[in-house]
Simulated assay, not measured.
Amino acid sequence: MSSAAASRQFGEGPLSRAVALIYRLLVVELLFLLTAVPGIVPLVLLDRDPSNLPLAAACALPLGPAISAALYALHRHRGDLADLHPAAEFWRGYRANFRPVLGIWIPWLGWLTVAGLGLAHLDAVGLPGWWAVLLVLAAVWVTLWAANALLITTLFTFRVRDVARLAFYFLVRTRGVTLGNACLLVVATGITALTSEAVLALLGSVLALLLLRTGRPMTNAIQEEFTA
């Protein structure tokens, strides 16, 4: 066997790929926690009371760029032991997408805050009970849109309004992606409700990987149809 062939085989077996992925997940998780900790710590300490929703939204601001950077670093994974630069790729994605991601993240948090306050004070504003169902459905729909928009913003360079349009378009076109993201949303909501936001944060890199893989049909379609 030639030295070139041996070099190609080294680090490309199933075990090596698994080790490389685990290493990347661990590094990305640590960096995710590092960048998100200014929001996670006060978010965990807040009481789960509707009056704290605006504060919770403010605490969640650092999470958007952190999730985007995790998605970027995991997207760059090539699956072999020679590909061990997740920290550099995380910071590259964090710097490049910080402002564009906030352009999506802030409106989403604002909408969830308004919807949450509306649900908490339905009786006070005199709205009928069925409005609660509409608000929940709208919040879920907007959250699924935000998941698409976050992924598009992370992996592509489009104007914010184009990202918004593509995210809505692919909610309907790639229904498998929408259903998969809905399942991730249920899992994330369940983890948070049964434990705490801290436990969800500790699974940040794994959830980012699942979001990335669930959204692959959408990102492949965008790559083929909307980029040169």
Rank of each mutant, 00 (worst) to 15 (best):
F158C: 02
V186M: 15
A96L: 12
L15Q: 10
L46D: 00
W131T: 12
R173G: 00
G103H: 11
A182K: 06
T227Y: 04
E89H: 05
E89F: 07
G129R: 15
E225L: 15
V101G: 00
R99Q: 06
T227S: 06
F158I: 01
L212T: 01
V101E: 00
L74D: 07
L184V: 10
A73M: 08
A18I: 10
A18F: 14
G110L: 08
V199D: 05
T143M: 03
L137M: 12
L127R: 05
Y94Q: 05
L212W: 07
L34F: 13
S51T: 10
L71V: 08
A193R: 02
S205D: 03
L61S: 00
A60R: 00
L203Q: 06
L134M: 12
G215M: 13
R95E: 10
F168S: 14
C59H: 06
G118C: 12
A221E: 15
A4I: 05
L21H: 04
Y94I: 02
T174F: 12
R17N: 13
T143K: 01
L166I: 05
R48E: 13
D162P: 02
V133I: 15
L74R: 04
I40H: 04
A198H: 02
P65K: 01
G176W: 14
G39K: 00
Y23K: 03
F156Q: 08
A56E: 08
F158K: 01
A198I: 07
T189Q: 07
R76K: 14
T214D: 09
S7C: 05
W111D: 03
T143S: 15
V140F: 05
A182G: 12
L135S: 01
P42E: 05
A4H: 10
N148R: 14
D123Y: 08
M218N: 04
I104N: 05
N148E: 12
A228L: 12
L84M: 13
V125H: 10
A188S: 15
L184P: 05
A82P: 00
R8S: 04
E29S: 04
G180I: 06
F98I: 02
P62G: 01
V44I: 06
L31E: 04
A147C: 13
L33Q: 07
L53N: 01
V142I: 15
T154Y: 11
T189I: 13
R99Y: 09
L81Y: 01
R95W: 11
A88N: 09
V206G: 02
A132T: 08
T113M: 02
G13S: 13
L30P: 03
V136W: 08
L203C: 14
L25A: 00
D123G: 14
T195R: 05
F156E: 06
A60F: 01
A120N: 13
I67Y: 12
G215L: 09
L137N: 02
L63C: 01
L122D: 04
S205A: 15
V187A: 15
T195H: 07
V28T: 10
V28H: 04
P54C: 04
R175K: 13
